[in-house]
């Protein structure tokens, strides 16, 4: 088997507070092959964005810290590289789209200049200025914006257009991996569908691998190959999109998530919420992180780390599967 383009091993990330530490990511591992899309799914505070920032090494200075783990990009551990080396990779080989296009763009710079900025920083071939400008035009056309609008400012574009510009900036240097952090959460459904279809087409065209961070299982079904369900900084279930959406065995949390979604086909009025709340990441429960909310919780869930069930790559971290009794 060929080496995956990105491999994260046992990653732990904390935010150091004055009084207490926030344990945002607690030992997650996953790998991403070329041209593949993995979805990191979870609710607010599950550690999805922290995982992305750890890979990009954009954690806030002094506060955010990777305490353990390895992140391999094309076989090289990113955590052993110095700042200069990381800078060559970030933006050029791995780039990121942020959630809110309204705040991700600089309001006092034309959109053309913002795309140009990333090109000129990573201009290792010393291309002349005209070439770079030509590339800006190409990128705008690629994301479906007329190139003659490059002298305009962000406020002159609608939300969907702004997100297209953010995508153009992220794609400027033809990255190998694109991390998309809730790229469509701030957009309307019809615009969301346009942007998702655009991203899918661009991914095929440019042969990128993608990490799709989202809380929306519908977005995952439409875009991903592999899925990691995250909760309180851990991956509770990991598998192919078929495993998650059509498989028989599921983590109780995954099951709860699916049942909580208001469905278009169901006829019952009442919804089935997951009772309780996500635990405080500064004060995580012992044992399985999900046990206080789990309807199947047993005594052994409250103490030791949960059992890791694995079959054909489909992983579930839950004691219920010790006897392999599907729920």
């Amino acid at each position: 088997m060929t080496e995956p383009i990105l491999r994260v091993e046992n990653l732990h990330t904390i935010y150091q507070g004055e009084e207490r530490n926030v344990y945002a990511v607690n030992g997650i591992s996953f790998s991403l092959n070329e041209k593949e899309t993995i979805g990191l799914v979870g609710e607010t505070g599950a550690g999805k964005t922290t995982t992305a920032l750890s890979i990009m090494q954009l954690l806030p200075d002094r506060i955010g810290k990777i305490t353990e783990g390895k992140i391999f990009y094309q076989g090289e551990n990113l955590l052993e590289k110095n700042k200069e080396e990381i800078r060559l990779i970030r933006g050029a080989c791995i780039s990121m789209i942020f959630q809110d296009p309204m705040t991700a763009l600089n309001p006092v710079m034309t959109v053309g200049d913002q795309i140009h900025e990333s090109l000129s920083i990573h201009n290792y071939d010393n291309l002349p200025e005209e070439e770079l400008q030509k590339r800006v035009d190409e990128l705008l056309t690629l994301v479906g914006i007329p190139a003659n609008r490059k002298k305009e400012y962000p406020h002159q574009f609608s939300g969907g257009m702004k997100q297209r510009i953010v995508i153009a900036i992220a794609l400027a240097c033809k990255p190998k991996i694109l991390i998309a952090d809730e790229p469509t959460t701030a957009l309307d459904v019809t615009i969301q569908a346009q942007v998702l279809v655009l991203m899918e087409e661009l991914q095929k065209q440019l042969g990128m691998a993608m990490i799709m961070i989202t809380h929306d299982l519908g977005v995952v079904a439409a875009t991903c190959d592999k899925v990691a369900i995250m909760y309180a900084g851990e991956i509770l279930e990991y598998g192919t999109v078929e495993d998650i959406f059509a498989g028989e065995r599921h983590h109780p949390y995954t099951k709860g998530l699916f049942e909580a979604i208001p469905s278009l086909d169901s006829h019952s009025r009442r919804l089935k919420p997951i009772e309780g709340l996500m635990p405080d990441p500064a004060d995580l429960p012992p044992g399985c992180r999900f046990h206080p909310r789990c309807p199947y919780c047993r005594e052994d869930c409250k103490t030791g780390a949960p059992y890791l069930f694995e079959r054909n790559g489909h992983q579930i971290r839950c004691n219920l599967f010790q006897e392999d009794t599907a729920i």
Partner: peptide
């Protein structure tokens, strides 16, 4: 346009 959490759902 609503992404449906089901396999094979297409937005196109």
């Amino acid at each position: 346009a609503i992404p449906v959490p089901k396999l094979g759902a297409s937005l196109k």
